[in-house]
Every structure is written in C-alpha cells, then in structure tokens.
Amino acid sequence: MEKMKFFKPTTEFKEMILLQEIENNHTITQKQLAEAIGAAPSMVNVYISELEEKNYLNREYISSKIVNYKITPQGLKRKNYLLICYMRELLALYKLAKSNVEKFLQSIENKGYKNILLYGAGEVAETIIGVIRDREIYSLNVLAIIDDDLQKQGTEILGYRIIDRSEIEKYNPDAVVITSYTFEEDIMEKLNEVGYEIGKVVRFFGK
C-alpha cells in the first residue's frame, strides 16, 4: 500500500485487505495487519472488532497476548464481493489509461513509423510494450530499449534487450521514442550528441 501514488485507501479497501490477510494466515499479528493496511496497530483492533461484530471473523484467544483469527463463511463472501468491486474499478481505470497509450501509438503509426527503439527502460516502456502486445496485429515493432544505466545494459525487459545509445545506428530504427519522464531533456541532448535525427524522435510526455 505504501507504493500507491494515486489511491487513498478507503474503509472498504482496508476491510478487503484485512479479510484477505486473515484468510491467508490465521495466526497473523496485529502488527502485521497494520503494515498490510498502512494503519497504526492501535487502529487494527478497532477494525477487527467491527469485522467481528458483522460476523466476518472470529477471534480465538490462545493466551493473553496471542490471538488467532478465523474468517467466517460470511466474511469470505464479503471479501470476494469487495475483490470483485475492486477489480471492476481497476479495470475501468486500466481501460482509460490504455486508451491514452493507444492514441499515442496511433500518432506514431500516422507518421509512418513501424520499427522503433524505446529510450528509457522503466515502467512507461513496459506499459507501451504491454499495450502493443494486446493488439491483435503488431503494427509497431519494438527493436530494443535504450538506457544509460550501465547495470541495465545487456539485460532484458519483457524479452527486449536493453542497449546503449551508441548502438542506435546498428538497429536503424524509424524512430526513437523517449519513455522517460524525469530525463526527457537530457535524452534529447544525448541523442543530439550521437547525431540521431531529432525529427525522428518522439516524446511520450512532451511535444
């Protein structure tokens, strides 16, 4: 949950996670549950009490300090319902994001480009490759991915080799697509340094 950038956990989300964690591990501690939902351990007991009142789980006191939890059939039903609702919302957001990436890919195709190199071996490159693979026909061909990180060079992302910018000429791409948000301007300068035609550079984030 700490890695989430755009979602503020709702009560329903925390309820879903608590039920999921308890189903997976009936000996889980309040501290572990607190970490799972990003809440203070003192608040977990409040959430647990509410779930118990709704008959979603039962507490088994092993000792004064040790408590086991057991999800009830009603709790399992509730958890599955919340998961379906959560998945439905995620799919709606995914479709929205995918449509925007698709428009970007179509703009590349409209320029007559087919064989491309991506510059920036990160989440954006992975997303673009994923959208291309979801298409029935691969009208765009990713040749490789450029990155200036020496530790990444020579490795792969989703089966695509990560190369140094000095290898661009060897691949003879129709265009280089910049997929880095933070280093976009730096990449433009580096492409200029190696003599790549700037008119064949496409920015995902810029113009």
Rank of each mutant, 00 (worst) to 15 (best):
I162F: 04
S49Y: 12
G112V: 13
K152I: 06
G154Y: 08
P9C: 07
D147N: 12
E53A: 05
S99P: 02
Q106R: 15
F6K: 15
K200F: 06
Y196D: 04
L76A: 03
P9R: 10
S49M: 07
T72W: 06
S166L: 12
E15V: 03
Q153W: 05
Y171A: 07
P41A: 03
D149C: 12
A175I: 13
L83F: 04
K114E: 05
F183R: 14
I187T: 02
S99M: 08
L93V: 10
I37W: 00
S139P: 05
K14P: 02
S64M: 06
I62V: 15
V124E: 11
E60F: 14
V67T: 06
Y181I: 08
L82W: 08
E52F: 04
I128N: 00
Y94I: 11
D147E: 11
Y47L: 09
K5L: 11
E60L: 15
G195D: 09
E109R: 15
G195F: 03
A92R: 14
I137C: 05
Y171E: 10
D148P: 02
Y181A: 12
F13V: 03
R133K: 15
D134R: 08
I28H: 02
D186I: 07
N24Y: 06
L93C: 09
N24E: 14
E52L: 07
N55H: 08
I178S: 01
Y81S: 14
D147I: 05
R203D: 04
Y196E: 06
G159L: 08
N192D: 14
K170F: 03
F205N: 03
V101M: 12
D149F: 07
G195M: 03
K79W: 03
E169I: 12
E126Q: 09
D148H: 07
N24F: 02
I157N: 13
L191A: 04
R78H: 03
L91R: 08
K5T: 02
G199I: 06
P73G: 06
N141E: 13
G195E: 10
Y113V: 04
R59T: 00
L57P: 01
I28S: 01
E169K: 15
Y196F: 15
F13I: 05
N192C: 10
R161Q: 11
Y119H: 09
V201G: 00
E50C: 03
K200H: 13
R59G: 01
I129K: 05
D149V: 14
L158T: 08
I145E: 01
V44D: 00
L158D: 12
K79R: 14
K207F: 13
I132Q: 10
N115P: 06
Y196I: 10
M16C: 07
A97R: 14
F183D: 09
Y160S: 07
D186L: 11
Q30C: 04
L105W: 10
K200N: 13
Y81I: 12
K95R: 12
I146T: 03
K79G: 00
S42P: 00
T10E: 10
E167C: 10
N24R: 13
T10M: 07
G112I: 12
E167Q: 15
K3N: 15
